[in-house]
């Protein structure tokens, strides 16, 4: 650093205005520090709307479940019903036997 640089560096700058500190920390107290992440963040921008939609889905699900037959009863009903192919096969088998034994159909 030469003499000229030293001369420049000795010049003292103004201080920040005193009221700036008070204003700054007055305002800083009103700064809202963002909270930690919450589930509500996922539902931005309308948590109520998303909540209502979720409640509707639950409602529809409940109604749909109560109207439908139980799984066990459905299975036993189905088991009792003859399959269409089985009926058709039985008819053809009987006709063939009748034909062989020469019974009238």
């Amino acid at each position: 650093m030469n003499d000229f640089e030293r001369k420049l560096s000795q010049q003292v700058f103004r201080q920040p205005p005193a009221e700036l500190r008070a204003a700054l920390f007055g305002e800083a107290e009103n700064v809202i520090v963002p909270p930690n992440w919450t589930w509500r963040d996922w539902f931005w921008p309308s948590p109520s709307a998303w909540g209502a939609l979720a409640a509707l889905w639950v409602g529809f699900g409940a109604v749909s479940f109560s109207d439908s037959p139980s799984a066990a009863s459905s299975a036993s009903d189905l088991a009792r019903q003859p399959l269409p192919t089985t009926t058709l096969l039985s008819y053809h088998t009987a006709r063939d036997f009748n034909h062989v034994l020469d019974f009238p159909n």
Partner: peptide, 10 residues
């Protein structure tokens, strides 16, 4: 200057 310190506050 104010913005810098407000940012640091937040």
């Amino acid at each position: 200057l104010q913005e810098v310190f407000l940012k640091l506050t937040a």
